[in-house]
Each structure stands twice: as C-alpha cells, then as structure tokens.
Design a protein around this nucleic acid. Structure first.
Lengths: 356, 356
DNA sequence: GGGCGGATGTATAACGTTGTAAAAGCCGCC
DNA sequence: GGCGGCTTTTACAACGTTATACATCCGCCC
C-alpha cells in the first residue's frame, strides 16, 4: 500500500503535523528536524495523496479546458499553451472536447462532465447567451474565442474584427478587388460574425463589393467544408480574385479545389487564412494567415481563471491577446516565391501583453 | 458553500448514509424513501464531492494520457479517441505532453506530473527499456506506439513492420524501383526502427536497393524535418522514384520540397505517409498513407488500463490494432487524378477488433 | 528567578464520502 | 405473543491531509 504521513511520522518519530510542515515548507522547522523528516520521506518514498489534500483544502489543483475539437491544430496548439501555462502555476489541465455542439457545451458549462475542477476555460461555438445566463454553477468560468457574449465572465480573444480587417486590407493592397469570405456558419446567428463583419467593413471602406454572393456559409469548419464552399462559389459563376477564409483548414481545403480547377494561387486567386497553423506553412503553396498569439491566450486564460479562485470576484473583463498577419506565398505580390524567405509581419499587435 | 450529504440528510430527516445509498443506487431502499431523499437532493442541488469520494474509495476516476505532442494531428485524433473511450467507462482523461523528450517521459512514467491518477497511458519516443525497468510506481501503465519494449507492460500498437511492408509493396507494385525512407531519427537506437525494418525487408524481398543513402535521418518528426530530409536526399544527388515517410507531416514537408524543385508527385516521385491525418487528404496532391485504427487503439488502451485497476494483474500482452493503406493521389498509377474518387483500401487488417 | 515572548512541535478536529456492523422494522409462523 | 429471518436504516469509523489551538522549549529581561 502507499505510504502516508502517518507512516513517515512513525518512522521519523515525530508527529504527523511535523511531517506535513516539512512537506509544505512551513517556515518554523529547525534544519535538523527538517533533514531528519526528509530522510524518512526519502527512505519510505512518501508522496502526498492529492485526493486527501483536495478534500481538506477544498481545491483540486485542476482546471478543465473545453475545446470544440482537438483535431483542429489550432485548438491542439492552444491546448498545449494552456497546459504549459497551468503547469507554471502547479495546475493540471483536464481536457474536454465538445464537438462544437450546443448540448455538449451546455453540459460542460454546467460542470456535468467533470466535477473535480477549480475552474473552467470554455471555447464555445454554438452556446447562446441565454444558455450561460442562468448558469447555476459556482466554478469560475472563462470564455475563449470569437463568440461575443454580454455576460459577466472574463473573455479572452483577439480583436477578430480588426484582425479580419487587416487580412482584407492586405488583399486590397495587393490590388484584389473581389474578395470572397468562406466559412460563416450556416443557420447560426453569431459565430464567424466578427470576422465577416471585419471583412465587410474593410471592403466597404474601400468601396469594394461585399454582397452575399461573396459569402459562402458552411456547416462545419474543417478542410472539407472549405473545399465545398469554394466549389459552390465557383459553380455559381463567381470568379473572385481573393479568398478570406474563416480558418486555415478551410483555406487549405479551398486551395485544393482551386488547384484542381486549374486556378493558380496567388496569381489568379490570393488566399488568406486564420489561425496560422503549422500545416499551412507546408502546402505546395504556403498560406498567408492571421496568427493569434496562442501563448498569450493560454496564459491569460489560465491567469484569469486562477484569479477567481476562492470566491475572489474581480470585475469581469474582456482581454485582447495580440495577433499578426503572416504573409506567405498564397498572397505574394510581384516577387517570385522565394524559398526560405523570412515571414513578414503586418498589422497591429494590440492589447494583451506583447508576444515574446 | 456547497451542499453535502449532511445537508441533504438534515433536510430530508434521515441519516447521511441513507442519502449516500440513494445517490449510489443502493439496492435496498424503499421507493418511498428514495423519492423523499431524491426530492431533497433536487431541492438543495446536491452534487457529490469527488475529492472525498476519491479519498474514501482510493480511486480517482481519472487516467492520464501522455503523448509526445498535441500539435501533431495524429496524436490529437488519438487523444480524442482515448477521451471518448474513457468516457464510456465514466473515466476522465488528463492529458499531458512530453515533447518526446526522455526526461519528460521519465517524469511522467514515474508519476511526478500527476499523482491523482488511477492509470497511465504513455506513448514514448525516447524512453529506453532500462528507464522503465526500475519503475517504482504502482499505477498501472500501458504503452502505446512504435517503440518495442521487452517489459511486463501492456503494449498497444499496430504491426509497424507489416504496415511499412504493405506501404512499400504498394510502391513496388506501381513499378517504383528506388524507394527512399524519410524519418529514422538521428542518433537514436530504436524509434522508427520498425518502420525502417519493414521498408528494408520488403525492398530486399523484391531484390531492390535499401542502402543507407536512401535513409534520411532527422532530428524531429514534423513538417520541417521532412522538408529538410528531402532536401538532403536531393542535394546528395539521389533521385529516388518513391518516398516512404515516417509520418504524414514529414511526407507533406517532403512534397513541398519536391514541388519547389519542380518534381511532380506522383509522376516523378510517388509518396506514402503514415498516420492518415486529415491534413493529408487536402493538399494540392492528396497523400497516400497507412491508416492506423485510432479508435481501436484508444479503446484498447483504455480497456487495458482499466483491467489492471485494483491490483488485478493480468498477463502483460501485446495488442495489435488494425490498419489499412489508403491510396490517394500521391501514388496514383496510370489513371489521371480523379476528383472525389473513393479511397481504396489495400493490405491486411490484422488483430485487434475489426474497425467499424 | 519568575515571567514573557517568539520559535518550534504536537494533539485533535475537521473536510465529505463510503464500508462495516449493528440496530430497527417487518413478516410470517409456531 | 414471541421468535427467527429477512429487509431497511442508522451510527461510527475510516480514507490522508491541513488548520487550529495548545504545549513545550529556549533565551532574555526586569
């Protein structure tokens, strides 16, 4: 059986609490005593029982991170960032995936999946404001991502409208005049709304068309959805000279269709994605993309959750992490594609802390 | 504060244990009593404290899954499979990433990262047999992946040698005569060894060259490593007519280099990857790949861990999950690339349970 | 030398749950 | 009516930890 404080105490000939004091680095322990106890700890191979500690302290040392899906590399990279940030605070992350389904998101937000957690970081897709309004759950919640809620929860995101505008501005600066948007989700009120808005605003500001025929709604947000949307646009007879996609997988799916139709990227059609996932760096044509500062998002999310532990209730705040537009071959201007070229950054890097 | 069994008991006018019995669906509770207690539970909104339950029962209901990295979509998809399989047994998964570094893997295998778990599923990269031999940790361990250990732990994997042979056989059947291997890790004894062996065996069996000049060792296993390896092969003056890569990201990195050098896939060089990640389906040239049955691997891993809980110690076993070779454009034969073509399966689907 | 205060160690009671054993209630039967 | 055998409920003791309050020790000052 596992060795407990009691065993160590017996072995060292001291009280249980003294051992506990050593384990917890309590200040008033003589060096001699500390060493003596430590020796017993080492000999017996004592390791604290976290369940007991949790019970006693009322905290578990774990936070949950609920993402739509792990298959999307953006979320996988984000998860890695959160895990690292949490580890820096001696916190463990419990990962959950909702599939972006409202039902699952609701379940998670109400704590049914994991009732062992001190806090929850949730990246919702379909969840509506009302779903969260009557959340009868005391576990602190921090929201992530593009959805825009008017609710008393911390929300970490990049400025999606500004980022989308930067992407479209870049396309316009290249001389593109007909910029299609791929990926506003079909039949949903909110998601992708901010990126569509940025797209529309920037085009309007430049006096360019932003009609509905240029927006391709989709059911999901994967490669296949991007490919389907691109197919639909072309089959409808439109020939945009630029694409702005909701995320990188959709952009990549769209580029495959363009390739198959014999359209050249970027000569015939320039493409910009969103998320800057590694996959986009290594296609036959590398992908220009909006690159959110994932490290910052992860760090800020963890800090926000932890700041609300133990009943502390700071004013809810919206935190903006940084982003930048990374230009690659899919939007190259006149110059020939150059292998090994440095990434160039463009556009604002607002709020949050500066990226490393 | 949160409501406990005691509060419910007081509210319902019964003993604590009776409430506990209701919560746990204990058999001998009269319907009347059950309803009365249930009503109090509902009114007060009672939810069990898992920390206390864990302390009492000695189990936590959590298993850890330690993977090299989440950024690789194969591992992300595998993680999703494990999470689902665990959920089916009311188990929660705690995800950890080791970066494939021996030090981290050692730490995880010895339970230093998370000491709250009932079991551990570990996918090692650098860990050596000796590292595990003197593991002084009572938490059940199940191994995943290509490494081949002679140790008393369950090991879930596909038959890497056979799978590699199937991939190379496919290339040979297409008439390819010079098949390079990308991705044997540099300076390591074991990893990728099985896939290299399968590659070598199949080539030898066909009387084709399998010399060291056709093997490109790499430091990592990402896109960039694949690209670098491909560059090195070409710069060394070799002109293989086929590539077998350790995994899909490396294959994709290699294909980008081929594209930049003006070599056509599959006409000049056919490419086969390993893992069948979604990303490979949507490149300009879609990627033929060995597709392990990730669902089965996840399910088998969870079942193996859970079977060892509570001191049960079944005979250690090696379990083989199924796989198949999915042909796509990167190895198309004479036919022109055909959009929307059905995936074709080739090769064995051994052991494990059949895939759905 | 008695008292005082800070530093150090200890006994005990929680935290919320479940297993054990015993008590209480119920039934039919002699 | 009492008794055995069942079902249902209860009391109590763990599980391993930490917080609280108290006991002890030491040196120091008046």
């Amino acid at each position: 059986m596992r060795v407990s404080l009691k065993d160590v105490a017996a072995h060292a000939g001291v009280s249980i609490k003294t051992v506990s004091n050593v384990v917890n680095n309590y200040q008033h322990v003589t060096p001699a005593m500390r060493e003596r106890v430590q020796r017993s700890i080492d000999v017996l191979g004592y390791r604290p029982n976290l369940a007991a500690r949790h019970l006693r302290k009322g905290r578990t040392g774990m936070i949950a991170l609920a993402l739509p899906e792990l298959g999307n590399p953006y979320f996988a990279e984000l998860a890695a960032a959160v895990i690292n940030a949490a580890a820096a605070h001696d916190y463990i992350v419990l990962l959950d995936h909702t599939g972006g389904r409202r039902e699952q998101e609701l379940l998670v937000s109400q704590g049914f999946r994991a009732r062992v957690i001190d806090g929850l970081i949730l990246s919702p897709i379909e969840l509506e404001t009302e779903d969260l309004r009557d959340r009868a759950e005391s576990v602190p919640l921090v929201l992530l991502g593009e959805r825009d809620y008017d609710l008393p929860y911390d929300h970490i995101a990049i400025d999606n409208v500004a980022a989308a505008r930067a992407a479209v501005r870049h396309l316009i600066a290249l001389g593109r005049r007909e910029v299609a948007f791929i990926g506003a989700r079909r039949g949903r009120s909110e998601p992708a709304q901010l990126r569509v808005r940025g797209w529309r605003e920037e085009l309007s500001a430049a006096g360019l068309p932003a009609d509905d025929g240029l927006v391709a709604a989709t059911d999901g947000w994967g490669h296949a959805d991007g490919a389907a949307a691109m197919t639909r646009i072309l089959d409808a007879g439109r020939r945009p000279d630029a694409i702005f996609a909701y995320n990188d997988p959709m952009a990549i799916g769209a580029m495959r269709v363009l390739h198959q139709r014999g359209l050249r990227v970027p000569e015939d059609i320039a493409v910009v994605g969103f998320d800057d996932v590694v996959e986009g760096h290594f296609g036959a044509v590398s992908l220009t993309s909006v690159s959110p500062d994932k490290e910052a998002i992860g760090r800020l999310a963890v800090e926000s959750v932890l700041a609300r532990l133990g009943g502390a209730a700071p004013e809810p705040r919206r935190v903006w992490a940084g982003y930048r537009l990374v230009e690659r071959e899919s939007t190259l201007g006149r110059e020939a594609p150059e292998h090994g070229a440095q990434d160039r950054s463009v556009g604002p890097r607002p709020a949050g802390r500066p990226a490393p």
